[in-house]
């Protein structure tokens, strides 16, 4: 079952890649006649942010470029537009993206706005590393939301816990102390312990 599912995923990814690649040619020739390329690299050496840089031909200014990342829902993959920008006089457009998890990531770009394109025409893989050197904080290491109020919270819970212990032990103590005294205190209609 495991190998079958992996084979299916691999097959779907291959078919998807072929479709994406064939889409590259169509989009490139259909809209500008110029090739679109994509580069992904950290904004700076110590930054977790990535610069997604697209190049449209040479000097094709004012063109809209939409950037994508590949998402995964259960075992299927899909493209999600993360942002867009317009090419400058050199035909370059860039977008800064903050990755939210580590590992191999697929980025894409396509000419056009996110309303007109739903898949990239060029794809680039990039390995996102956890905690690049020099970065003091990752998303996980940000200060915890209960950091300031946690002390009061903890004391409250300990207080409730102490109350529960008092109730439990108090009830037991009450029974142990009071029950023998009630034995001879009444002659009533209750059922007696029969021999």
């Amino acid at each position: 079952m495991k190998s079958l599912s992996r084979w299916l995923i691999a097959a779907a990814a291959t078919v998807g890649s072929v479709l994406v690649l064939s889409g590259t040619a169509v989009a490139a020739t259909g809209q500008s006649g110029a090739a679109l390329s994509l580069a992904v690299q950290p904004v700076s050496a110590n930054s977790v942010n990535l610069a997604l840089s697209a190049q449209v031909g040479s000097g094709a200014a004012g063109q809209k470029v939409t950037f994508f990342i590949q998402t995964q829902e259960f075992s299927s993959h899909g493209w999600m537009a993360v942002g867009s920008s317009t090419t400058n006089s050199a035909g370059a457009a860039s977008y800064t993206y903050t990755p939210t998890w580590t590992g191999a990531e697929l980025f894409g770009a396509a000419l056009g706005s996110s309303n007109s394109v739903s898949a990239p025409s060029v794809v680039k893989s990039f390995q996102v590393l956890k905690d690049p050197p020099g970065v003091p904080q990752s998303v996980i290491e940000y200060s915890r939301p209960l950091g300031s109020t946690g002390g009061v919270f903890v004391k409250s819970i300990l207080g409730v816990l102490a109350l529960v212990w008092v109730l439990l032990l108090g009830s037991l103590a009450l029974v142990v102390w009071r029950m023998p005294r009630l034995a001879g205190a009444s002659v009533d209609s209750g059922r007696k312990v029969r021999d």
């Binding site: 009830s171 029974v175 029950m179 034995a183 009444s186």
Partner: peptide, 21 residues
């Protein structure tokens, strides 16, 4: 057994504490 005799007051007390627990 805490000198259990089955008196009504013993029974009432046990029932109350058991309900609380």
């Amino acid at each position: 057994s805490l000198k259990w005799m089955g008196s009504e007051r013993q029974r009432r007390m046990l029932h109350s504490v058991l309900t609380l627990i």
